[in-house]
Design a protein around this nucleic acid. Structure first.
Lengths: 238, 238
DNA sequence: ACCTGAACACCGTTCAAGT
DNA sequence: ACCTGAACACCGTTCAAGT
């Protein structure tokens, strides 16, 4: 027993002196590595076993620091939510909402796996903070509460829905996102589906740049108009 | 060899006469059963092994009729797309687009697993038909092509984004969708996140019924206004 | 032509044992 | 306190053998 202790201590000493290249395991290190893997190779390539190997540990060691894989995924999205900068207080509420939407989208584009997890994973603190912020900006407008409620969902849906849709399009293609559109075009009978063929061709021609912003503005303008119509009570709308 | 053939034939005869309760295997039967399982227990509960067992076959038999699981999933969404009734030709284009959006949403609500597959799975014939139809209705308006292109994405994003978002909310709760909202409310500090707490309370109070339609109309109105502004060239907009 | 047993290379997670 | 070997109950898919 004396011997055992000595050997153990020796090993600890040795490893602390040098030789042990791996960083200490912990929730933060795990999540950071998971994000790196998902960024590089997609969420599908993220397994607990691979995650552990890349960290230099065995699979089971992870469970000393996190409850299960779901907790890792939750923490990953929350990290993305934390990347979204808080909107400037100086701006008027609606443009603050606009830039918040743009920044959220930017974060989701930086981490293409995040949009779908955003929907399915239980919201962590950063996500709740993000909600709070968007809701706060709408409450600073003079929208009535029910319109503000609506505004939150409309903007949120657009940000996530648009990004998901876009990423689904580019999913299988490598950097050349066109590849997939071209393959799709080849697959359908252009004479039977003329509008679809034309639509895809518009995409290939790149005539579809900033539609995220255009639709976002359309929604925000619609909301502004809505509450203006509301507050002017009797409609001298036109 | 003679004996073998006889035995085999005998078994075939017997089974065709009675005894063999299971229906013949085929692409259609497989997809139908897969949809039934996903409807009842969710997509996560759908494995090839379970699917085969419920059909009365071994797993590997499935691969005589379909290439892989992905093909099954693709066929499942396409079946949902096929459920969406074609819009009446009598309506004016924008209301036709509106009812098409509503019907699509209804189909996605009937099959809660379908919305996320809609985004990730390669579109089959019914999905292409669905695209074609929505694009066709917008092209029948007098929108310029670029606005029609935008309209397609805006409406599509809303339908899928809204439904996904909504289902994410109700995901873990059983029939009582409130359960999850209440749990969320308990989890956050109401004084730190007042707007978020208020928002969730609005949901619990049920003050949030038809927001899908309201936002849809907001988008469609915005689009109509947009092309009206476009076509009247010089803006006598107000 | 269609069904299937055995096998392969994976999963996430638990539990008891190690230091 | 933290790490880990062995094991459990799953996956999707292939291949060669059966009738």
């Amino acid at each position: 027993m004396d011997v055992q202790c000595t050997l153990y201590d020796l090993r600890c000493t040795l490893s602390s002196v040098s030789s042990d290249t791996r960083e200490p395991l912990g929730r933060q290190a795990i999540v950071a590595r998971a994000i790196a893997i998902a960024d590089e190779r997609g969420v599908d390539a993220l397994s607990m076993r691979i995650l552990a190997r890349e960290l230099g540990y065995e699979v089971m060691s992870l469970y000393n620091h996190i409850r299960n894989k779901d907790e890792v995924l939750s923490a990953m999205v929350d990290a993305v939510a934390a990347e979204v900068p808080t909107a400037s207080v100086a701006d008027d509420p609606l443009t603050a909402a606009r830039t918040l939407a743009m920044e959220t989208r930017a974060a989701l584009v930086r981490h293409p796996w995040a949009a779908s997890l955003w929907l399915t994973q239980w919201p962590g603190p950063a996500r709740v903070g993000h909600m709070e912020q968007l809701l706060a900006t709408f409450s600073e407008t003079d929208m009535p509460p029910d319109v503000a409620h609506l505004a939150f969902h409309a903007v949120n849906n657009h940000v996530i829905g648009y990004t998901l849709q876009e990423q689904a399009m580019a999913y299988e293609a490598g950097d050349a996102g066109d590849e997939i559109a071209r393959r799709f075009l080849d697959g359908i009978a252009a004479e039977e589906f003329p509008h679809t063929a034309a639509h895809v061709r518009q995409h290939l021609a790149g005539e579809t740049g900033s539609s995220f912003e255009v639709v976002l503005d359309l929604i925000l303008d619609g909301l502004a108009r809505m509450h203006r119509a509301d507050s002017s009570a009797v409609g001298t709308d036109r």
